[in-house]
Write a protein that binds this DNA or RNA. Sequence first.
DNA 1: TCATTAACTGTCG
DNA 2: CGACAGTTAATGA
Length: 234
Amino acid sequence: MKEESAICYTCINENCFIKKHLHLEQMRQFVLKKKSFVCKKSEQFITEGAPLQGLYFICSGKVKTVKTGINGREQIVRLTKNGDTIGFRGFGTSKRYLIGAYALEDSVLCNFSNETMLEILQTVPEFTYALMLFYADELNKSENNIRKIAHMNVRERVIDLLLYIHRKFGQVNGLIDIELSRKEIADFAGTTEEQAIRILSSLKKETLIKTVGKRIGILAIPELRTEIMEHKYF
DNA sequence: TCATTAACTGTCG
DNA sequence: CGACAGTTAATGA
């Protein structure tokens, strides 16, 4: 990728952490140190346990982050899209990445080195404060996820995932705008591919969703939502 | 055309 | 609910 096209000042990702603080002139020196590159679909750009190489920001595309379990089964930790940040969990404390990351489609990634991140955090308080809020929010989400995994059955977890990707990636022409294999759906819901397929099939029979190849469209959001409603509070 | 891959189904423990 | 076997459809050397 030409470094030029990924210069932050012309970037369209208004929700990107870097972009949001670009009005501060102190940021200019740091942005220039950024490295951008392309990661093709299904390629891995962070290896679990590899030494930290700073933070990644998604300029365009979609990415999944995973943790590998004991039996070689993968657990998808997050699904992320352009504007999102990756690799922040091990940042600062751990010397190694705690997750692996794969591109779900051809993606452009921006990377800031550990040193550059440190400099930004020490010289731009607005950025540091925003990042702290971000961490707090992420912590809250992850605690919610623990509860989900503990109390929801497989069907409910799949439904929860469908509603989540529907909200996060949106629906185009009646189909959710992300391509996940059935295996990946299973990895996110913490189950096996076959189980995930069965649940999708029954949801389809109940005309709550529809499928076109890999793509999934949600037909009855309220019905699906009520099914997992009881897990949202107590 | 053959081989590979992914979605899907049936069944058993 | 997970694991294994087996079918089907699409894709591509």
